[in-house]
Every structure is written in C-alpha cells, then in structure tokens.
Write a protein that binds this DNA or RNA. Structure first.
Lengths: 201, 201
DNA sequence: GACAAAACAGGACAACCGGTCTGTTTATAA
DNA sequence: TTATAAACAGACCGGTTGTCCTGTTTTGTC
C-alpha cells in the first residue's frame, strides 16, 4: 500500500499532470470551459484519454483543479503580491492597472481576466465551481483591504473604508477588463484610473 | 414573389419568434450560450425544430438576434433611459446602482448582467458576436458621457472627463455584478458606491 | 527478483448536438 | 378559386462529446 504520496516523475520530467493543466488553463481562458472539448485538450497536450482520465476523472475535476491551482495563482502573482509589495494600497492598485495595460498593449490582444472569464461561465452552472471562484474573489479583495489597513496603521488613508476601497478596485478592474476584452482595446484600463492628482475614492 | 414583408400573425398572437427569443434570452442569461442546447430551447418554448430553424437558421443567428434585440434593449431600459431622465449623470448612475441592488436583494438571486455574461463567453468566439456586443458597450458608455456633457453645459461637473467618468461607471457596475453573481450577494453593488458626501471620481 | 500500485495507452460507447430534409398547413394576393 | 410563399411540424443524419473499460508499462517497496 502507499504510505506516503510518491513524488517521482514518470516519463515526462515536467510531469504530465502539469502539462494538462497548462493546456487546460490556456484553453479555458481563450475559448471557455464548454467550448473546450477534452479531445482538443488531449491533442494539444499530447496526452492519451487514459492518462487524462487517470489524473482528472471528469471534466469538472479538471476545471476545479485549474481554478484552485492556476487561476488562484494568477491572481496571487498579478495582484496580491504586487499590492503587498507596493508603498501603499493606492499605489499598488494603480501600478497593477498600468502594468496590465502595458502588457496587453504590447501583446496586442486581450484575452480577459482568467478569474472573471470562468466566473461568468461557471458560477451559476455548479455550486462547487461557484464556491471555488468565490474563494479567489474573497482572497483578492481581502489582500487589498489588508493593505489599506496597514496604510492606516502608518497614519495614511484615514478617510477610506478598507472594504469599500477593495471592492471598488476589484470591480473596476474586472469591469474594465471585460470592456477591454470585448473592444479588444486595453486603453479602457487607463480610462478607469483617475487623472494625476485626482483622488480615487 | 414577395413585394413587401407581410406582418400578419399566424397562430400565436404573441408571435412564435418572440417566444423563442424570450426563452433563449433567459437560457443564455442563466446557463450561457454553449450550455443551452437547441433541444432545451425548443422544449422550453414549445416549438418544433422546423419552426425554430425557420426563424433562426443557425444557433449563431439566434444568439445574434438575442444580443441585438434583447440585450441591447435591456441595457437601454435599465441604464440609458434612467440616466438620461436623471437630474445629473452622477445621480443617474447612483440611482441605477441602488435600484439594481434593491431589485436583486428582493428576488434573492443574482443572475448577473446579461451583456457581460454573453460578452465574456462570446467575445473571443466569433467576430460577429464581438462586434454586436462592443456596439452595446459603446452605446452604454456614450449615453453616460453625453449626460455628463449636458451637465457641463449647465455649469456642473466642470472638473470631470466625460469619457473617463462613463468608462469608470460601466466598469464598476460590470465588475460589481460579476462579484455579486459569484458571491450570490448583491451587497457588493452598494460597497462600490461612495459613501454619502464623498466624491466619485 | 517479486509484487502491488500507480501511470499511462487506446479503443468503445451511448448520449447528444446542431443542422438538414421533406411534407403539411396557413395566409395573402390575383 | 387558385397560385404562391411564408409558417410550421417532425423525422433524420453525421459528427462530436464526455466517460468508461480493458490492457500494458513503469515505479517503488520488500
């Protein structure tokens, strides 16, 4: 019997499970969950049906893994970590907006926010999906709110409500990405940031 | 040959085409485009396959009709008209937020914004979808921007950029609805409005 | 080396999807 | 009435979907 989880790689040094997650993450982002067939994913990942079914018994299990392991990590990397590292919550939010806008304009194509893309398609489809997605939204908002509270402990942002500020930041970003995706123009992100000197309350 | 388009109803006084659009609008809103099969829609509308194919040759044509005729009308009814009728752009935006929040809290269920739901799923799937959805976003934003300009002609809102204000309003609403849908809690809409007396810039 | 479990291969299958086809009824115009 | 086209009914088909199932290979442990 297996006492401890074995962590040895088999054939692929990178791991076949990770390759499937890579492909699924990209496909769900580009085409959505329902529009991505397991056949497509198998072909794109160079994986047999048996292998895929071994790691992910159902398509739902695969999507849940993508959400928990990849989408959450993406939010952490592009939002939570930069905000925590910034000089202030307000600076951090602005920096992320500008960084994402610059990145999108450089690559000339807007795929949208991974979290929001899946949230719109799957939130009402299944309670498990909704719970997993809601957790990520919650962590995202809380990280920003915590940063505001840290600012307040240092005497700044006395007039701001941490919860409201975080909700507004996440909502503005999510909505701006939605528009940017539909218009295929990242400029909307900049329009949603206040002009220099103006407050963003 | 048909010289002019005949407009007489056949069996159903309400029109079978409208009934299909009703059902399709609701299904696309609740389950999305790909998750709604034509069989489901036929059963829900009590319509035969031949009838559906007569009015809408393809599923894409049906979705395009839903977007152009229903989603656009929904945005017009819940956003454009109220904003135009309001005392000011700022009041109008705030009123819509509060009206939608109240309506959602009353019915205890958040289905999300019809436009954003379809935009996320279909914007990258097909250029025709994307164009139709982008048109609605554009009209939505322009109506708000026009209202700001009307305010400015009366001496108010001198410091505000109409385009930015409109983009921010639409983005905030879209993103707040996204969170509200995933959390199944309309309270986020209120969190995204500024506290009394604070400016929303 | 022996053995058990995990990792993987690949075919099979039933259900379902969207679209097409042919036929029938109804309404309009001459 | 008669001709014509729109409005509708319902069966049908090829292709695809997600899942399951039976083997085979590889890995880790004694």
């Amino acid at each position: 019997m297996a006492r401890l989880r074995s962590r040895k790689r088999v054939n692929d040094p990178e791991g076949m499970r990770n390759k499937v997650l890579d492909v699924a993450e990209a496909a769900f982002q580009a085409r959505g969950y329902h529009a991505s067939s397991l056949g497509d994913l198998m072909a794109a990942a160079g994986v047999s049906g048996g292998a895929l079914h071994h790691h992910f018994p159902t398509k739902k299990a695969l999507a849940l893994a993508v959400i928990d392991e990849r989408v959450a990590a993406a939010v952490e990397a592009t939002w939570i970590a930069p905000v925590q590292a910034a000089a202030s919550a307000r600076d951090g939010v602005r920096a992320v907006f500008e960084a994402v806008a610059a990145e999108l304009e450089q690559q000339g194509f807007v795929r949208g926010c991974p979290l929001n893309n899946l949230a719109h398609e799957l939130s009402l489809a299944d309670p498990d999906f909704r719970a997993a997605l809601a957790r990520i939204f919650s962590a995202w908002r809380q990280a920003i709110a915590d940063k505001v509270r840290a600012d307040q402990r240092e005497g700044r942002e006395q007039g701001t409500d941490p919860q409201r500020f975080a909700a507004l930041a996440v909502a503005t970003y999510s909505g701006a990405m939605s528009m940017a995706k539909t218009a295929q123009d990242a400029g909307v992100l900049r329009d949603c940031l206040p002009a220099q000197g103006e407050a963003w309350k």
